[in-house]
Amino acid sequence: MENKTINKILIVEDEESIRGFIKINLKMNNFMVLEASSGEEGVKKAKLEKPDVVILDVMLPGIDGFKVCSILREEFPKIGIIMLTAKSQDMDKIMGLEYGADDYIIKPFNPLELTLRIKALLRRVVEDEKNEATNLIYGGEFRIDTYSQKIYKGDLELEITPTEYMIMKIFMQNPGKAFSRDELLDIVWGYDFIGDSKIVDVNIRRLRSKIEECPSKPQYIKTVWGTGYRWQNP
């Protein structure tokens, strides 16, 4: 059953009409909704309320959405972040992902699409491993503890986002299997993704920077030219 617990969603958006529009639709889906109209207020509310997902506008008064995203990601590695942008340029999307966002959506958007993306993200944020035969997954020098949703390289715990966790889990459970970008979109994002498949490449690049000794010459996440990516245990 979905949404047994009430999930907190923080909307950081300076336009009151858009905030209200999002709030109404989220409340109809039984989410607890928090609001902030500036970047500074968004950071304060996130630290105080610890929401499950933050809906974060790029263009904000004071500190912008990219900076807020960076602050929240550093302080709350497991928080879900979806960026809102009124621009369609690839650079805005990619910048949001590089700063640690899990997803992005372009205004104007269908409220159903936003709700589906939030629910898909919550499936990555909230632990749901009851059917796992074991709590541990091993791959090379890496280990995933599915109970705590933590990933270790040797004895060092890695600071990863919920999306990066899901990608690593999929790879380490299927060593040697080549995944196309479309397959990863379907499995990780969990909906018929409308947008640029570069979201996969950006997350892979970000993940490589955290796990590889030399990200430009990866040992673990190999590029399969013309297809996508696969995990290799050295």
Rank of each mutant, 00 (worst) to 15 (best):
L97K: 10
L112S: 08
K50R: 15
M59Y: 03
I82M: 06
L56D: 07
F109T: 05
R73M: 07
T85D: 10
I79L: 11
V53C: 03
D90R: 14
E74K: 14
E98M: 10
I81Y: 08
P77M: 05
I82K: 08
E98P: 00
L97W: 06
D103G: 02
L60A: 00
L72G: 00
I81S: 06
G100C: 04
L56H: 09
M91H: 08
I94N: 03
L56M: 12
I71H: 01
P77H: 06
E75G: 01
G62Y: 02
T85L: 11
E113K: 10
P61Q: 06
M91N: 09
G100I: 05
F109W: 05
P77D: 05
D57F: 13
D52N: 15
L112A: 07
E49F: 07
I105F: 04
V53D: 03
D90K: 15
G80Q: 09
D103N: 12
T85I: 14
E75N: 12
L60D: 00
N110F: 04
G100A: 04
I81G: 05
D90Y: 12
G100P: 04
M95R: 14
I105M: 08
K67W: 04
E113Q: 11
G65W: 03
G62I: 03
M95E: 11
K50T: 15
M91D: 10
D90H: 07
P61N: 05
I81A: 06
P51I: 12
E74P: 00
K67C: 00
L60H: 01
A86W: 11
E113T: 13
I79T: 08
T85W: 10
M83Q: 08
M59A: 07
G100V: 06
M95T: 13
K93N: 11
M91R: 11
I79E: 02
A86F: 12
L84K: 02
G65R: 04
E113F: 03
L56W: 08
C69M: 11
G65L: 03
N110W: 04
V54S: 04
I63R: 01
K67D: 08
E113G: 00
S70F: 08
D90W: 10
F66K: 01
P108V: 13
F66T: 00
A86H: 10
D92K: 10
F109H: 03
K50H: 11
I94R: 12
S88I: 10
D90E: 13
M95G: 00
V53P: 02
V53F: 04
L60K: 01
L72S: 01
L72N: 01
D90P: 02
R73V: 09
V68E: 08
D64K: 10
V54L: 06
G96V: 14
V68R: 10
T85V: 13
K67Q: 13
K50F: 04
E49P: 00
K50V: 15
G62T: 03
D92F: 15
I71D: 02
K78T: 12
K50Y: 05
K87C: 01
D90T: 14
D92I: 15
K87D: 09
K87N: 13
I106M: 14
Y104T: 03
I105G: 02
S88L: 04
D64N: 15
L60Y: 01
A86G: 15
E49L: 09
A101E: 05
P77Y: 06
I81T: 10
P108L: 10
